[in-house]
């Protein structure tokens, strides 16, 4: 069963999710994973879908475009290699949550991500928020990361150093989960 990544982006308005998923149902697709959110008034859709065997990315994108075009969405469909997961490393290593906040300035995300990458840490989820007024904008960055087993301390020290160099506040805690 072929799998595809699907992205759609456009000015937010009611009905976008209904329209996109309506096409997917018509095409016999199964929605395997999704994230949808508003970014500064733009509604962003990222999906992984599985589809009937004969489906092609070009055909699926064309079917979507008929419906999403009038809604002002830009849609892209790409085939995904099987087996599922590919080279993903999200399940490996120790999960941590990192909170960063401070005066807005260019390069915060890059500096933190670079420190993580150099330490072989993997970003598995990231969201940022620009808050406060124009006089004193504040950047808030929340990350969920996985860090190489046994080397979390070095990775966290690198992130902490990057935050200090940027003059932003940084705290981190392990993701605890109890199986009940």
């Amino acid at each position: 069963m072929p799998r595809f990544s699907l992205s759609a982006l456009g000015a937010d308005r009611p009905g976008i999710v209904a329209a996109v998923t309506g096409v997917l149902v018509d095409q016999g697709c199964n929605l395997e994973d999704s994230t949808m959110t508003i970014l500064q008034g733009q509604f962003a859709v990222l999906l992984v879908v599985s589809a009937p065997d004969a489906t092609t990315a070009v055909a699926l994108e064309a079917a979507l475009a008929e419906v999403t075009g009038p809604l002002g969405l830009v849609v892209a469909v790409r085939p995904l290699a099987e087996p599922p997961g590919g080279a993903g490393t999200a399940d490996e290593g120790d999960p941590w949550t990192i909170s960063i906040h401070g005066a807005d300035r260019p390069g915060i995300v890059h500096a933190v991500a670079l420190a993580l990458a150099d330490a072989e840490g993997n970003v598995v989820d990231l969201s940022t928020h620009l808050i406060g007024g124009p006089d004193a904008p504040v950047y808030v960055m929340m990350l969920r990361v996985t860090l190489p087993a046994g080397r979390a301390e070095a990775a966290l020290a690198a992130v902490s150093g990057a935050a200090t160099a940027l003059g932003v506040h940084c705290t981190m805690h392990p993701d605890e989960s109890d199986l009940l």
Partner: peptide
């Protein structure tokens, strides 16, 4: 201790506008 709720939330999906 210089900590805000932002330093205590469970992750990226625990912060809301």
């Amino acid at each position: 201790d210089g900590l805000l709720f932002l330093d205590r939330v469970a992750g990226p999906h625990a912060v809301f506008p």
